[in-house]
Amino acid sequence: MNWITNYVRPKINSMLGRRTDMPENLWIKDPETGEMVFHKDLESNQFVIPSSGHHMKISAKERLKFFFDDGKYEALDNPKVTQDPLKFRDEKRYTDRLKDAKAKTGLEDAIINALGTVEGLPVVVTVQDFAFMGGSLGMAAGDAIVHGFEVALQRKRPLILFAASGGARMQEGILSLMQLPRTTVGVDRLKEAGLPYIVVLTNPTTGGVTASYAMLGDVHIAEPGALIGFAGPRVIEQTIREKLPDGFQRSEYLMEHGMVDMVVSRLEMRQTIARLLKMLLKMPGEQKPLEPEILPPAVVAAETRPQA
């Protein structure tokens, strides 16, 4: 035992919820400035680099921990689906790719649904984990999303969805495409019930995911600097044969073009969403209500009035 094993080891393990206890994870390089940041400082700052504000990708489990009150939540079981419906293989068998992704992330697929509270408000949260095959959308993820909406509907809770995905799970072919209408049914039913649906677009959210539930929120919030778009930048470059402008398809660009309501730092996500939801649900806010003595007399309840 030395100071490294005592002090550092558990932090590394918890960092990404993975078994990648490589010592180089001790220091993390800011991809924007190249600055080296000590991982402990980074974790305590929700993996937002303190000096540059760069938002690093985080796992679904970390996301849930950072978002819910006291980091406490109940993860829901996902519906069982047929694995590899097309018996697909490219350079590798799809079943092997799934096995690898499960081992790497400790997840069953790219989606986790969880119940918990944010600033005291009970909510359902659906999180997409980019580390699981690029957060891609197949039968398992699609069904899990539909399930999340159903639970929110049953429990009459708002749903907050953190999107992170490269798009379709190509290994599931047309079944992957069918997740666009399927998840949309979930969104529509929640909205019909008068329950709020908030989408948080994180880096990256592209392809079929943006062309369905991720762009159908009542409110769209983006994390700073996230890549968000339908067609990937490479595909567009190949089509138009010119270099894309700086900042193209980034959160700030989307806000400028009217596609998201706000760009919000991860560090302020909880407060922002809770504040908004409480208003939409007509719940009392943080500020104390106005003192009765400064209200006009008619507003003061009759029984509290001094009797003549």
Partner: peptide, 13 residues
């Protein structure tokens, strides 16, 4: 769907 700068700008997704 058309993959172009304008299409993205105007919210293709």
């Amino acid at each position: 769907a058309y993959p172009g700068v304008g299409a993205e700008e105007r919210g293709q997704a």
